[in-house]
Design a binder for these strands. Structure first.
Length: 325
DNA sequence: AACATCGGCAACCGCAAGTCC
DNA sequence: TGGACTTGCGGTTGCCGATGT
């Protein structure tokens, strides 16, 4: 036997709400509250509607302090930050935006914000990125895809341009929670703290990419395809609003599997282009095919809208702990 | 002017989790 | 303890006005 329907579908009205229905529902709830029972409410309120429909109408449209209209830049930033860390959990995102509903945010994301972000990502649209392009991958987003069973492994220089004495960590794929990822991140070996040998940045000086740049904190990550990803903060780089990119790490260098020349390249960390050929092979060539993870990466790389990521991740972690205990 | 297409958004649907008895 | 019922969530649909042809 199947589950009983929540209402008599043959006798309930569907479609847009009329002003009269809105008034009835609002008056009833103002006078009696929801009574903790949405299923019984429409009958009591004299509405030929399903209880779920009433609840939705109230929560998304009629309840007090609902904010309609344009989203502010601040709201955009919060949505993007949270989406990059928790994905499409609209109710949690809505909880951080007073007056906004999950449905509103979901619609806004699907119709506007996602497009806006994609337009801000020349890297994903062009085979040959221009100088100063947004980096398509950061440490956080990369690790979201591939952090499991970390183990240390030595990594040796493969040519004159890249060098590091710090151990790389090997990840074998899979998925972990954001909390675990962040905990893992804190245990990464950094070049600046544990070695006096040349860092990847110093090696780049010889390459002509960043003359005079000193050692900078960076992380090396190996995936299960034996590709090495080097992430770091670009100390001299700042965004147009001057906020910098200190809140997250950008993908600085990448080695494909094997050591053939076609798979070695460095990203233009300061807008200095170098191995165009290699960069062309790194990212998707289909500008229309974006997975959620790719969009998350895109958000993570945009420091204008993501510079409070860690703050919100901390908040969410706290919330999760509260819920857990 | 008529039709087609697009974009925004309200509303619906199915499912899973939570609650009650 | 388990089944019935309710609530909440997220994905999807469909309507309608705007825009393009």
């Amino acid at each position: 036997m199947g589950r009983a329907p929540c209402c008599d579908k043959a006798n309930v009205k569907k479609g847009p709400w009329s002003p009269e229905e809105d008034a009835k529902l609002k008056m009833y709830i103002d006078n009696h509250g929801t009574g903790g029972n949405w299923i019984a409410l429409p009958q009591k309120a004299g509405l030929k509607r399903c209880g779920k429909s009433c609840r939705l109408r109230w929560l998304n449209y009629l309840r007090p302090n609902i904010k309609h209209g344009e989203f502010s830049d601040e709201e955009d930033r919060i949505i993007c930050s949270l989406f990059s860390s928790i994905g499409s959990r609209w109710s949690i995102i809505a909880a951080h935006l007073p007056g906004r509903t999950d449905n509103d945010i979901k619609n806004y994301w699907n119709t506007k914000l996602k497009k806006k972000l994609l337009e801000m990502a020349p890297f994903t649209h062009q085979k040959r990125p221009h100088h100063g392009a947004i980096y398509p991958t950061t440490a956080h987003s990369f690790l979201q895809n591939s952090s499991l069973h970390p183990q240390t492994a030595p990594y040796h220089s493969t040519n004159n341009y890249y060098y590091t004495a710090a151990p790389a960590r090997v990840f074998t794929g899979g998925y972990e929670s954001m909390s675990n990822i962040l905990e893992n991140t804190t245990s990464f070996t950094t070049c600046s703290s544990n070695t006096s040998t040349p860092t990847v940045f110093q090696a780049q000086e010889g390459h002509g990419a960043r003359a005079g740049a000193g050692p900078t904190q960076n992380y090396q990550v190996k995936d299960n395809y034996n590709r090495l990803f080097i992430f770091g903060n670009e100390a001299s780089c700042s965004s147009s609003d001057g906020s910098g990119i200190d809140e997250d790490l950008s993908l600085l260098s990448y080695f494909g599997s094997g050591v053939d020349e076609d798979h070695k390249f460095t990203l233009p960390t300061n807008g200095y282009a170098d191995d165009q050929k290699a960069r062309n092979g790194c990212f998707t060539e289909n500008p229309l095919d974006y997975s959620i993870e790719e969009i998350k990466q895109l958000i993570s790389t945009n420091n204008n809208i993501c510079n409070n990521l860690n703050y919100f991740v901390d908040e969410i972690k706290t919330e999760e702990q509260v819920l857990y205990y």
